[in-house]
Design a protein around this nucleic acid. Structure first.
Lengths: 202, 202
DNA sequence: GCTATAGTTGAACACCGTTGACTTAACGGC
DNA sequence: GCCGTTAAGTCAACGGTGTTCAACTATAGC
């Protein structure tokens, strides 16, 4: 699902099935995932889309705007959150770690979430994008269903563990964690996530 | 303490107390902390050091080499590790969180560890530097003193929590965690760190 | 004094994101 | 059927980046 909306063209040519805008977004998605935010240059994206680089900023304002329009969250929270809750309150942490590890392993580190996390270290606007999405679409419904106290704080603490896991296992690739089985990772990290989700905090 | 060694000039002028190399390192330290790895340009560092930019790459090879030579770890592990162990095995996690939070709060986010963590997201060579330092100088002696099983795995898991905390509280500044009291943060995160340090893993 | 070498500079290179002027093409109103 | 407006799209340029290379200077050792 998209993180930011694309300005739908109000007028202009309407005959082709794919406008330049869509070709740009497609090329951007591919290159951002492949080379990361910094590694994907506007010129390279433009070349792949068969247009001039300045057309990209004409459409999306700047590189951050293109990133926000192109990147997509790989899960639909409305679908995933019920699955996380399926096994009862006491298993939500394990299920959440399993969902992330499963997705990240399957896509081999080249996935939107990790790309966004990395980019958010350098670009404050991308950090805002990430933070708002997490809060509104992921954590808010999750904690509403759980009914835990201090949901905002818990979501922050949960983020420290989940983003830390993503960084160490998939970006920095610390061993032996990077090569460990998903089931083991769930067993190791799950309890920490569970504590932040439903445990006593102080 | 330094993370990488500076090539000491084998010959050359020796009369001044401060060579150009030291002035470059001093300027680099200041600008890297102030503006981050990307924000500190070689030309700006050179200007501050009163020297031409190409002299920097002559001395340090490239920008990463300069960073490795300039950045310093704010603690001496030989001094800090005994302090962490002072209150017994059961308090090491809390003491470690306290050490990091104390340092990071005092320096307001502009400190070598966070700067290095951020830079390591984009520069693999800096990630190597960080990983090797953590393993050899910090985690190895700590786990030797603790005598826990699977020290390599435990150090990875500990890193997920510590680096995640640094990212969320100081770089991304998620609220309410970013504004919480140090003592509260220790109470919330300490148990997770403690579990990775001495708890049962599976 | 001569020569090798380290220190140091300035110009240049290839690339980056972004800007602004410009052309082209389609539309709505008359 | 023309005409002004507007979006689509191109092109060259700007100021910036890290890095390279040839040139020059000053010192140390012989």
């Amino acid at each position: 699902m998209a993180l930011a909306k694309t300005k739908t063209p109000r007028t202009g040519r309407r005959r082709g099935v794919s406008s330049s805008q869509e070709q740009i977004l497609e090329a951007a998605r591919e290159l951002f995932l492949q080379r990361g935010y910094e590694g994907a240059t506007l010129r390279a994206i433009a070349k792949k889309a068969g247009v001039d680089a300045s057309l990209i900023v004409h459409f999306f304002g700047n590189k951050v705007g293109l990133f926000a329009a192109a990147i997509e969250w790989p899960h639909d929270p409305d679908v995933e959150i019920p699955k996380l809750l399926r096994d009862g309150r006491g298993r939500v942490g394990h299920n959440l770690v399993g969902l992330l590890v499963g997705t990240w392993d399957r896509e081999g580190g080249r996935n939107p979430i990790l790309t966004m996390i990395r980019a958010s270290m350098a670009e404050p606007e991308i950090a805002d994008l990430l933070r708002n999405f997490l809060r509104e679409r992921l954590y808010a419904p999750l904690f509403e269903a759980l009914g835990s106290d201090r949901p905002d704080l818990r979501s922050n603490l949960l983020a420290t563990q989940m983003i830390g896991l993503g960084m160490i296992r998939y970006v920095q690739r610390f061993e032996p964690l990077a090569s460990a089985n998903p089931a083991d990772v769930i067993a190791w990290v799950g309890p920490s996530a569970q504590r932040y989700l439903t445990g006593k905090l102080d």
